[in-house]
């Protein structure tokens, strides 16, 4: 399996991002509607799902906040907003990353993919999405977009994982419903679909 896809790497990424995302004040911090004196907000461009989007981003704004509240991509879920649960997992240059713990300004040059970008233009589901439907992998579904993005990242790095490798690949994503077994079945089926 790709060693990049471990929880350890997620956590390192969180530390490196410098995102302070641990208090009940996270929402205003993430949204950053008010600006300290001397700061000038910047209209930046980010590449999301193959489209370059111009967006007004505060310096301390997280990618999850930008995606959900500026770009309307609500498929990226916030379960904890502090790098614990993985519901906000997106791909940054093919690497599964916690969007709640990545500053938007830090990914200006990156390719960002969310669950909304997986379907083909004709509406066909991505093989991981199709496999998750066939295996009925989701239960409540709240963690599902994050699980899917983690699985897509895994299969790009390792198209034919063993079940144990798939298990390690999904280790950064909590499912409180406990549907892990069905998610693993979905990943293994997706690997077969290709």
């Amino acid at each position: 399996m790709n060693p990049k896809l471990t929880r350890r790497r997620f956590i390192k990424g969180v530390i490196a991002s410098g995102a302070a995302a641990t208090s009940t004040t996270i929402w205003y911090a993430a949204n950053g509607a008010d600006r300290p004196a001397g700061y000038v907000e910047r209209l930046i461009r980010i590449n999301v799902n193959g489209q370059v989007r111009s967006v007004d981003v505060a310096p301390q704004e997280t990618l999850a906040s930008t995606l959900r509240y500026k770009l309307g991509l609500t498929g990226t879920k916030l379960g904890c907003n502090r790098g614990e649960c993985g519901a906000c997992t997106v791909l940054v240059n093919d690497i599964p990353s916690y969007a709640c713990s990545v500053l938007t300004h830090s990914v200006k040059a990156a390719r960002i993919e969310t669950v909304e970008g997986l379907e083909s233009p004709n509406g066909d589901l991505h093989p991981v999405q199709q496999a998750f439907v066939e295996e009925l992998s989701p239960q409540c579904g709240y963690c599902t977009p994050g699980q899917i993005m983690a699985a897509v990242g895994l299969l790009r790095a390792n198209p034919n994982p063993t079940r144990e490798e798939a298990r390690q690949g999904l280790a950064g994503n909590i499912c409180r419903c406990g549907s892990y077994d069905s998610y693993l079945d979905g990943v293994m089926r997706a690997a077969q679909i290709g």
Binding site: T74, F132, G141
Partner: peptide, 21 residues
Amino acid sequence: KDFVPPDVAGKVTGRIKYAED
């Protein structure tokens, strides 16, 4: 018999909406 529940597609595409969406 197994079947595809109507909401599964929304769950795997992110289209289904929870309250905060």
